[in-house]
Amino acid sequence: MHRPNGIDWRRVATVAVVVVCVSYAPMAMTELWPYVDPNAPAFGEWILSRVVSAEYAADALATRIEPYRHSLVPLIVHSVLGGALMLLGPVQLLTAVRRRIRLHRAVGVVFALTVYVSMAGAGIYLARTAPEDAFSGAAFWIVLATILVGTVMSVTFGLLAVIGGFPDLHQRWMLLCYGFLMTAPLLRLEWGALPWVLPGLSMEDVNRVAIMHLGSLVAFGALIASRAMDRRANVPGVRGTWVPLPVLAAVHLAGAAALAWIARSYWGWGTTGQRLLVAYLLPYAATYAVLFARQRRAGREGRNWAREEWRLHLAALCLAPVLSVAAALPFERVLGLDRATALTAGVTIGCGVLAFAATTVVSLRVMYGREVIKREGIAAARRERPVSAPVA
Results as ranks from 00 to 15, higher is better:
V15M: 09
V19Q: 10
S23N: 05
P26C: 13
P26Q: 05
A28R: 04
A28G: 11
V36F: 06
A42E: 13
E45L: 10
L48I: 06
L48N: 14
S49D: 13
R50F: 04
Y56V: 02
Y68A: 14
L81G: 05
T95K: 06
I101T: 12
L103G: 08
A106G: 14
G108V: 00
F111E: 10
S118V: 10
L126E: 03
E132P: 00
D133A: 13
A134K: 02
F135E: 12
A145D: 07
I147R: 00
T151G: 11
T151E: 11
S154I: 01
L159K: 02
A161C: 10
I163A: 15
G164F: 13
F166D: 11
L181C: 06
R208M: 04
V209M: 11
V209D: 05
A210N: 11
L223W: 10
D230K: 02
D230L: 03
G240R: 07
T241C: 05
L248S: 14
A249K: 06
A250G: 09
A256V: 14
A257L: 15
L259G: 05
G270T: 05
P283S: 10
P283G: 05
R297S: 11
A306M: 13
A320G: 05
L335E: 13
L337N: 01
T344P: 01
G350C: 01
C351L: 04
V353E: 01
V353R: 00
T360Q: 07
V362R: 05
Y368P: 02
R370L: 09
R370K: 14
R375F: 03
